[in-house]
Write a protein that binds this DNA or RNA. Sequence first.
RNA 1: GCGAGUGUAGCUCAGGGGUAGAGCAUCACCUUGCCAAGGUGAGGGUCGAGGGUUCAAAUCCCUUCACUCGCUCCA
Length: 505
Amino acid sequence: MSKLSVDLKKIISHSKEYGYIFPSSEIYDGLSACYDYGPFGVELKRNIKDYWWRSMVKSRLDVVGLDSSIFMHPGIWKASGHVDAFNDPLIDNKDSKKRYRADQLIESYIEKLNSKIEKEVKKAHKRFGDKFDKDQFLQTSVRAQDYLNTITKTTKLMNQYLIEEDYGSLKKLIEEIGIVCPVSGTKNWTDIRKFNLMFSTKIGSVADQATDLYLRPETAQGIFVNFLNVQKTARMKVPFGIAQIGKAFRNEIIARQFIFRMREFEQMEMQFFVRPGEEMKWFDYWKKERIKWHKKIGFSENVLKFHDHENLAHYANAATDIEFKYPFGFKELEGIHSRTDFDLRSHEKHTNKKLQYFDSELGESYTPYVIETSIGLDRMFLAVLCQSYTEELVKENTRIVLKIPPILAPIKVAILPLLKKDNLPEKSKDIYNKLNNFFSCYYEEKDSIGKRYRRQDALGTPFCVTVDHETLDNNSVTLRNRDTMDQVRISIDDLIIQLNNKLSF
RNA sequence: GCGAGUGUAGCUCAGGGGUAGAGCAUCACCUUGCCAAGGUGAGGGUCGAGGGUUCAAAUCCCUUCACUCGCUCCA
């Protein structure tokens, strides 16, 4: 096992030990790729959401929020392209262990036959010179006719089987035409299985009258179908954005790497509607805005990078990812996509309802173009954990610290009596009650003071307030910094102001 | 789905036919005057599940389940 995955392993077990993340359904042996957020995980997650919502919605005049439902009309997923585009027949080669899409295997086979025909044509052209008639050749050449017939027949059968979802026959077809695996060169294929990205379920209490529907695979569509509702009621003018935080569900073929790729996950999305033709300007604008956001909470230059897409999705005309350097490499954390007017237009087509905006400045109506920023909340959570987890040597002992940015930390301040006697606990609890109105606090009196500091370090608490005998004399406490372990003595009255300075957005 | 690996205490793991173990963690009491691991005691396990071999199985055999890693996909 590589050193990198050892790091991830440490983070996973630390997350569990300190109440951040538990494996789902653990006492039933777990459920693959599902995780639960524990008492401190849920706080960190909430703080990340707040940080995003504040900067994307609260601090801007041109973006408003939305919380659309997870269940939506099944027609939406037809319009968005999810029903057709993510419904693949998959087949494995048992020798090379490679997985392919069955239809793509057959298509590349047809491609090969086509190039063989081309070769024949070229050869014949050489032979006959200028008098060469391509159509005539194709009709008379036995070999070319053979290829053409096979292509026609194979294409027809493939399409028929795909539509009927007759995967048994589709496999037979692959075997009959003798397709081999490009890697192993063998015909040792598994059966074809259908893979569907979306989870389906039923709504309605009577089974046979129930309507099939899907759990949403992205939050974006809830925004698109509410475009006019939001624009009109919040009286927004293009350019403007709609933001949403919510769960999404994808039946990933393989879900791995802890909370990086889960089947149930949470997205923080914003769709920004702009005038047609101005999309690249806004695409660049949001690229800059979003990278600024990441840097503001302390992600450094060398753990972030843009990754521009070469192959664009069916709806996009430009796309980039912000990648974060996880222990398993640079991976997508956030996507910024120029989605054109694909979604709005597609919903118009499917509903026969106008989804246009009248631009009073231009004096015309149009379907806005859309720039999407979409960040995985769980991926952000993991990025924060990976960035924060540190082990350092202090007097030949390992100190494990979660250097979580203070504004994101689940617990902001721990209040600790130096000793569990002499009225120190009582005094500490007074301070706890006072501070807890402003920050999330933690009170602890067990074990030696050093041990308690280390425990708070491991939990990621940025500040410890220690109450000692001097506190009883002059109302002063020590304030300890998690990252430097430095302590300053300050008056209790100054605590709230000082902490506020360090903990505000 | 295929391949490999792993399942023993809350965590990290040892033990490989003969009474279930260690360190850390937890709880109680004592100790403790600022950076983890001081003392005494206690709780906690049908050794992933089912079956087989055996006088005897955590240990050997078979089956099964779950997780982890790799491969294909990722709006």
